[in-house]
């Protein structure tokens, strides 16, 4: 069986592409590293892709607001191609800075690229503690979650977070319950002031996922901070990539 391609965006200050590629390799994908310019110059790349992953990092140095400038660049280079891609219901995964980019594009939670900034219902703002935070957190998967979280509904998982701007904020008068319903993942403890402790957002169709924690950094048991005293377990991050692979079947 040939492995399906998964596009992995790189360049412009993205810096988690190698471990993302590694996670995709472990999950039977064929990862293909691409820059914004590659996607612009070779439109077939995006046309034929089934999966695109926006890894974590500090695109454009996190200046102005995390993810903002890369979102501006993607919009300028690929507006129509992205509209076509998202409306076709194909898979998209944004991790940390990649999640921030998807939120800035309006793709999350709406599931489509929004042209008017005023339509975006949510944004990601500075952590309430005002600081960058690297630590492992416990998260609960929403009951009944499928797709990316198939078989994980209602359980608790562990993943690392590494961000300074992960606090989900709603536009005033936005219906909170609507947004809450789109979150498959919540922090067990309030680590950054995020609305309803939301750690991830899923598009309504379930094909686009963005999350602040880093699933690509828990694909080996020895990445867990307590591995030296725990029995070996299946790493929670790897499950997510395996599920994404299963969604293509």
């Amino acid at each position: 069986m040939t492995k399906p391609d998964a596009l992995v965006l790189r360049g412009d200050g993205i810096n988690c592409e190698e471990e993302t590629v590694h996670a995709l390799n472990l999950s039977q994908f064929n990862p293909v590293r691409v820059t914004c310019l590659d996607l612009k110059e070779k439109p077939t790349l995006l046309k034929q892709a089934q999966v695109i992953v926006l890894p974590g990092g500090f695109s454009f140095g996190d200046e102005v607001r995390s993810g903002k400038v890369l979102a501006v660049k993607l919009r300028a280079y690929l507006q129509e191609a992205l509209q076509e891609y998202t409306s076709a219901g194909r898979l998209m995964l944004g991790i940390c800075n990649g999640f921030q980019v998807l939120v800035q594009l309006g793709i999350l939670p709406s599931g489509r690229l929004l042209l008017n900034d005023g339509e975006r219902p949510v944004t990601l703002a500075h952590n309430s503690g005002g600081k960058f935070l690297d630590r492992w957190v416990k998260l609960s998967v929403a009951p009944g979650a499928g797709g990316f979280y198939a078989g994980m509904g209602g359980i608790k998982i562990s993943l690392p977070v590494r961000h300074g701007e992960g606090r989900l904020v709603l536009r005033q008068d936005e219906d909170g319950s609507k947004i809450a319903a789109l979150s498959p993942l919540r922090y067990e403890q309030d680590i950054n002031g995020s609305y309803d402790r939301i750690a991830a957002l899923l598009s309504e169709q379930g094909n686009i996922l963005g999350l602040m924690p880093h699933p690509e950094c828990f694909v080996r048991p020895g990445q867990h901070p307590q591995w030296t005293s725990l029995p070996e377990c299946e790493p929670d991050g790897l499950k997510l990539f395996a599920n994404m692979r299963a969604m293509l079947n």
């Binding site: 600081k131 080996r220 990445q223």
Partner: peptide, 19 residues
């Protein structure tokens, strides 16, 4: 906590470990 000590995914013994 303010320094990313896990990017690149290679960490085995981190600066802070344990339960």
């Amino acid at each position: 906590r303010q320094y990313d000590h896990e990017v690149q995914g290679g960490s085995v013994i981190k600066p802070l470990m344990g339960p």
